[in-house]
Simulated assay, not measured.
Amino acid sequence: MAKPNYTLKDKTLNGLGNLIRLLPTGTVFIYQLLNPILTNDGHCTIINKYLSGILIALCGLSCGFSCFTDSYTDNEGSTHYGIATMKGLWPTSKSMDTSSYKIGVGDFVHAFFTMVVFGVVTILDRNTVDCFFPAFESTEKTLIMVLPPVVGAISSVVFMVFPNKRHGIGYPSN
């Protein structure tokens, strides 16, 4: 069987699709929905800072946790979701052997960089910056503008080295 020839466009779109899969859409949506409310549109009191910090932490943990979820299709065609463990997926049906879904180093690398990418998303949010760093000067704002492309480039290289083979909750299994 001949190996298909992938064009640069195919590889780029595939890489973009993998990057889009990194951040769970629901988590980012929840963050973008609740953040303006919890930060009081950037005019924070101490309570707003705590609430916004809790939101950021929970959403970051959700992004990291999603890297340890996977799905499989059983013999009857039903899709099952689970959490990757050292022994395989949990919970699992008795009829399927899910030992091939064990946690690996790549899962931890993905979780770490997914949380870093989410951190960059939070730093790009104007309300978050105004809430936590209201006195930022132009040099700090320049750093915030330079940080996303640098993190994106580093993350892209890491994700090419450790490709994501998991089909987490919300993503169809192949």
Rank of each mutant, 00 (worst) to 15 (best):
K3W: 10
T7E: 11
T7S: 15
L8A: 12
L8G: 04
D10L: 02
T12S: 06
T12W: 08
T12L: 08
N14A: 07
N14I: 01
G15W: 14
L16A: 09
L19P: 00
L19H: 07
R21D: 13
L22P: 00
L23V: 01
P24T: 04
P24Y: 08
P24D: 15
P24W: 07
T25H: 07
T25P: 01
T25N: 05
T25Q: 10
G26W: 13
V28Q: 04
V28S: 05
Y31W: 09
L33E: 03
L34P: 05
P36W: 15
L38R: 06
T39H: 10
N40D: 12
D41N: 14
H43N: 12
H43C: 02
I47V: 06
K49N: 05
Y50D: 00
L51N: 08
S52L: 14
I54F: 10
L55F: 05
L55M: 06
L55Y: 08
I56D: 01
A57S: 05
L58R: 01
L58V: 08
C59G: 03
S62T: 03
C63Y: 00
C63L: 00
C63N: 02
G64K: 00
F65I: 01
C67W: 03
C67A: 13
S71R: 11
S71C: 10
S71I: 03
Y72C: 01
T73F: 03
D74Q: 11
E76Y: 09
G77A: 04
T79W: 03
A84Q: 08
A84I: 07
K87Y: 09
K87W: 07
G88I: 13
L89W: 05
P91F: 13
S93F: 10
S95Q: 14
I103E: 03
G104D: 05
G106N: 13
A111T: 01
F112R: 02
M115V: 03
V117M: 12
G119P: 15
G119M: 08
V120P: 13
V120G: 10
I123G: 13
I123S: 10
N127L: 02
T128V: 15
V129T: 14
C131G: 10
C131F: 14
P134Y: 07
P134I: 07
A135K: 09
A135G: 04
F136V: 09
F136N: 06
E137Y: 14
T139F: 15
E140S: 11
L143V: 11
I144M: 15
V146R: 09
P149G: 02
G152A: 02
G152F: 08
I154E: 02
S156E: 05
V157Y: 14
M160C: 09
F162Y: 15
F162M: 12
G168S: 11
I169S: 12
Y171V: 11
S173Q: 04
S173P: 01
